[in-house]
Design a protein around this nucleic acid. Structure first.
Length: 313
DNA sequence: AACTTTCGCAACCGCACGCAT
DNA sequence: AATGCGTGCGGTTGCGAAAGT
């Protein structure tokens, strides 16, 4: 048996909200505060709307101090950086941008930033059937050579090698969980995250990445329940940086750019069809704004916003 | 001016989670 | 432990506006 619908779809009104409906909802919430039960709210105030619709309308439009449009360059950078780090968790990204809603950011990303970032390279499955305008976009950007991120650093590939040590797979999982936790506050255990997927994939693809004593010792220093804050540049082994920066990768958070299901091949900078090699991905991990957090910025190539995130833990 | 195509955004949909029972 | 329900989230769609032909 399927789940009962939250409202009667036959009698409930859909589509754009009228000013009268807005006024009713706003007035009620201003008097009574954000309601405890959205499902019951429309009946209480005589709105023929679904409770979820009321909630959405309030959160995305009627709520005070909402900003619409006019994203600044700084906001662009924050959104891009966070997207690369944590993927499409719009609510988390919105939490870093006061006055912005997750819906707004999602729309802005889908309509503007993604194109800007990728220069029109999009997987065909990502395209809606009736929207073929990206050819023009690609042609234009190919013609004038425009690109969002600066040229990536020339990092030689195939130069990393990890020493064998016991249960590398489990160690990688443990490490990625800890490191990822710092990038995805309050996100439940068991969820795949970009870094976790990346590290997992490194192991699955090469079958040979193991952790050295230095790395293991770093991992063991991570609290299983909390976040381990690096105390300086020397605490994070250089080889971890290489793990992030010296291989061809496919970041889960970027799957939506090129579709899913393609595994990165050998660790020589090449990738299988449809996936991204390091030269394609690295500019996404090297956004223009780079500062340092106790020196570790140089190790991890973290953008400003992630440094703030780390600092906020 | 008329028509077509593209864009941007508000809103909907369905799923997953967490809490209460 | 199982079930039901409300909430929150991310993906997707629909439609009016703007731009192009």
């Amino acid at each position: 048996m399927g789940r009962a619908p939250c409202c009667d779809k036959e009698t409930v009104k859909k589509g754009p909200w009228s000013p009268e409906e807005d006024a009713k909802l706003k007035s009620y919430i201003q008097q009574h505060g954000t309601v405890g039960n959205w499902i019951a709210l429309p009946q209480q105030i005589g709105l023929k709307r679904c409770g979820k619709s009321c909630r959405l309308r309030w959160l995305n439009y009627l709520r005070p101090n909402i900003k619409h449009g006019g994203f600044s360059e700084e906001e662009d950078n924050i959104i891009c950086s966070l997207y690369v780090a944590i993927g499409s968790r719009w609510s988390l990204i919105a939490a870093r941008l006061p006055g912005r809603t997750d819906n707004d950011i999602k729309n802005y990303w889908n309509t503007k930033l993604k194109k800007k970032l990728l220069g029109g390279k999009q997987h065909k499955n990502q395209q809606r059937a009736h929207r073929v305008c990206h050819k023009n976009q690609e042609a234009k950007e190919s013609k004038d050579g425009s690109s969002f991120w600066p040229t990536p650093p020339n990092i030689p590939t195939n130069q990393f090698k990890y020493q064998v040590d016991g249960d590398g797979h489990a160690s990688i999982r443990k490490f990625s969980t800890n490191v990822d936790g710092r990038f995805s506050c309050n996100y439940g255990a068991g969820h795949e995250t970009p870094l976790a997927s990346f590290l997992e994939q490194q192991h699955l693809c090469t079958g040979s990445i193991e952790l050295s004593e230095q790395v293991t010792s770093f991992i063991n220093g991570c609290s299983p329940s909390g976040y381990h804050m690096p105390q300086g540049p020397n605490e994070i082994p250089v080889e971890l940086d290489e793990m992030f920066c010296g291989n061809s990768v496919k970041l889960e958070g970027l799957d939506s750019f090129f579709g899913v299901g393609n595994m990165v091949g050998e660790s020589n900078g090449t990738s299988t069809s449809g996936s991204m090699n390091w030269n394609e991905v690295s500019p996404l991990i090297h956004p223009p704004v780079v500062t340092s957090y106790q020196g570790m910025q140089q190790q991890y190539c973290l953008p400003d916003e992630l440094v703030h995130l780390l600092g906020a833990q």
